[in-house]
Design a protein around this nucleic acid. Structure first.
Length: 676
RNA sequence: GGGCCCGUAGCUCAAGCGGAUAGAGCAUCGGAUUUCUAAUCCGAGGGUUGCAGGUUCGAUUCCUGCCGGGCCUACCA
């Protein structure tokens, strides 16, 4: 609602500037005033115009205020300070629309249906992409939670989204665990199969993987086992490849179970083995050669390889003059990225280029599909195969791509984008977003708790990187278990009257809320220094704080003998515009209005999150709304309110905030317990 | 060497394309009428936004140079 009012305001201003000053300002900046008493929007417009019009900002502001005329939904514009234009909306009108929960555009934009705002075409979000050779850890949790929340944000905005989780089942990481089972543990395929059927097979692989790394270090010759295993996996149709397949599928299944605990689901799991066996690369390779994106190097250390210019490097040595043959451009050795090795095999980036051509429907080949995993809610997750089932959903061929991959891979990601552009698919390259974020590390204290020996240098660091290879890190399931246990102790103490099952359910919801919120509250470029104390906190800027605000709202209705959901549904009919004016207008209405205004901003915030690929704004929004509600809750006792009209208004306020908060939390993948 | 990111309160982090008095949480200290349960609320202290310049009516934000830290820079994935 809030965002449509903003847009309408900008349109009126733009029209005014055009007809009055003959100026076309492409981007009219709209801000939010520092205090609610100043209004709902603030425009620094006059400062910008001062130079162009050669007039004092204050004078321009006065002209704008006087000349722009009435705008539907707005109360008035006024000049403040040196030339700010503060804008006041019609509080009663906005509140009534929010209470009625009108579909966003019905109220604000009757001339344009909501569908106009939703861009055409499907969106593909790739996230998680965990190597299927060991248990998922906290770093993977950040990825999956960011990715899943972004999916929810897109769906909130009306987009159709496919969720993919890319599985590298043919690389060294899987090979190393295969080496561990076959060479160190000396297990047979049947024995491994039995282990894989046990509980938390991924934990077993976690430890084994760390031991394999040690084993390699013991004798250089031990590494030969890895090469042999890798070769067998790539060739396929042999015992080693079968072992690798069974391990990677078993670990993958564990990952899906772990993520399902957090309400994270996938639609499709494309695997590297199919990219190889279905010859995706051959198709891509031919096109890349034709387009001159790949260059065959004949000298230097990369002699015999097909190379590409590394993303971010410029051809400073060979000035890009017009008419210069670009395809014959010489790339200095250090700016070369090897795509095809001299032995003819393709590296990771090459496979990724092929995969992304497939994503955009530019490859001319498709995967085979079979059902792999059915979630408890009966949603099916599909996996790639060479020969698949006849009937399957259509994946790929999308309009936009978001890849949730950590910042360390930005160069590789940009190289893929460059390749698409080099192939002449500039429009695809423009709609390819590397959703980049920083890693999760551990505080030195946390590392010490896990038994890691700290050097003096380590102790001075603000954080220490986890290492799967060393088996050093916090496993996702362990963290979740710890959170559930901790939340469970609180619930048991507070609600002994509930059944153990019910208490467990609540503890799980709180744990998931705490974990998801924790991973979302930091902005993406910030390294998270993980600490159990912080992650296990349920107070202050946390998920449980926001959940608790909803529970409190629910309690009001329960104690009052009312149904909160039902009350919220027709809340718009309970009060007249005059009622809203009475309680929201003027100085006295400011603090409750602030709560209403915050509740009205959800779709605006969702839009910001998508535009900036930053889910942290949603966490901030949830916290702010919960905080305002708690203040309101404390300041205005509702059930004991004597004035019936006022009581109805306060109840409506609680119902609307509760409804919006539930919506926000759902978009973050966080449910709300019945009691806390 | 080159590329990318970061540096804000004791700690962990915010600050929408440059805007009004740089905000939260934690920690510390002091409070909250026996209320819709305190996983809550109110208050206090705590800042030369790494340093130095520049652009601007206005800079935490943009530019340049330093200082400090991280990541990437494999014929690994």
């Amino acid at each position: 609602m809030y965002r449509y009012l903003e847009r309408r305001l900008v349109e009126h201003l733009r029209a005014f500037l055009r007809r009055t000053y003959n100026l076309d300002i492409a981007n009219i900046v709209v801000e939010q005033p520092p205090k609610i008493a100043f209004g709902e929007y603030a425009l620094p417009l006059a400062f910008e115009l001062a130079k162009k019009l050669r007039q004092a900002p204050r004078k321009i502001a006065e002209e704008v205020v006087a000349g722009v005329g009435a705008i539907p939904g707005f109360e008035k514009l006024e000049v403040a300070g040196a030339g700010y234009i503060n804008v006041r909306v019609n509080r009663a009108e906005l509140a009534r629309a929010l209470a009625a929960d009108l579909p966003q555009d019905d109220h604000s934009r009757q001339d344009q249906p909501a569908a106009v705002d939703v861009p055409a075409g499907k969106v593909l979000v790739e996230h998680s992409s965990i190597n299927p050779n060991k248990a998922a850890h906290i770093g993977h949790l950040r990825n999956a939670i960011l990715g899943d929340t972004f999916v929810r944000l897109l769906r909130f905005a009306g987009r159709e989204v496919d969720v993919q989780n890319y599985i590298d089942n043919t690389g060294v990481q899987v090979a190393d665990v295969v080496v561990g089972f076959l060479h160190i543990e000396q297990k047979s395929r049947a024995q491994i199969e039995a282990l894989a059927a046990g509980t938390r097979f991924d934990y077993l692989c976690w430890d084994l993987y760390a031991r394999v790394s040690q084993w390699y270090d013991e004798h250089k010759s031990n590494r030969e086992a890895r090469s042999a295993v890798l070769r067998s996996i790539e060739e396929g149709n042999n015992e080693v490849a079968a072992v690798a397949e069974l391990i990677s599928l078993a670990v993958l299944k564990r990952h899906l179970e772990t993520m399902d605990r957090l309400d994270i689901e996938y639609d499709f799991l494309p695997r590297e083995s199919e990219i190889l066996h279905l010859h995706f690369w051959e198709s891509a390779f031919a096109k890349l050669k034709d387009a001159g994106v790949l260059i065959y190097e004949t000298e230097g250390k990369n002699s015999g390889c097909w190379v590409m210019r590394r993303a971010g490097t410029s051809s400073a040595n060979t000035p890009a003059l017009e008419g210069v043959e670009i395809t014959a451009e010489k790339i200095t050795e250090e700016d070369q990225k090897v795509i095809v090795r001299s032995n003819g095999t393709v590296g990771y980036v090459g496979k990724d280029i092929a995969y992304h051509m497939w994503k955009f429907g530019l490859l001319g080949r498709d995967f085979g599909y079979r059902k792999f995993f059915r979630y408890p809610n009966t949603h099916d997750c599909w996996i790639s195969t060479v020969e698949g089932e006849k009937d399957h959903p259509h994946f790929g061929d999308v309009a936009e791509v978001y890849n949730v991959i950590d910042a360390r891979q930005s160069e590789a990601q940009n190289t893929v984008i460059d390749a698409l552009r080099g192939l002449g698919h500039g429009e695809a390259a423009d709609r390819y977003t590397h959703f980049s974020y920083e890693m999760v590390a551990l505080t030195p204290r946390c590392a010490a708790e896990l038994g890691y020996e700290l050097s003096e240098d380590d102790k001075a660091r603000s954080w220490i990187e986890v290492s799967g290879r060393k088996g050093f890190g916090v496993k996702a399931d362990d963290l979740l278990d710890a959170l559930i246990a901790s939340a469970g102790r609180e619930v048991d103490g507070r609600h002994p009257e509930l059944s153990a099952t019910e208490r467990g359910r609540i503890a799980t919801q709180i744990a998931v809320g705490a974990l998801r919120y924790f991973m979302l509250k930091y902005t993406k470029p910030s390294v998270i220094a993980f600490d159990f104390k912080e992650a296990l906190s349920f107070e202050g800027d946390t998920g449980p704080y926001a959940q608790y605000a909803v529970v409190r709202a629910s309690n009001i209705f329960r104690k009052g003998g009312l149904d909160a959901d039902a009350f919220g549904e027709d809340a718009g009919n309970k009060l007249s515009a005059e009622d809203f004016s009475r309680f929201l207008d003027g100085e006295s209405g400011n603090d409750i209005w602030e709560l209403w205004l915050a509740a009205a901003k959800t779709s605006y915030v969702v839009g910001q999150c998508i535009a900036t690929t930053e889910p942290a704004y949603l966490a901030k929004h949830a916290f702010q709304l919960a905080q305002l509600f708690n203040t309101f809750y404390h300041r205005y006792p509702i059930l004991s309110e004597a004035d019936e009209g006022r009581k109805k208004f306060l109840l409506t306020t609680a119902a609307v905030v509760r409804r919006e908060l539930i919506r926000i939390l759902r978009t973050m993948g966080i449910g709300v317990p019945s009691v806390m």
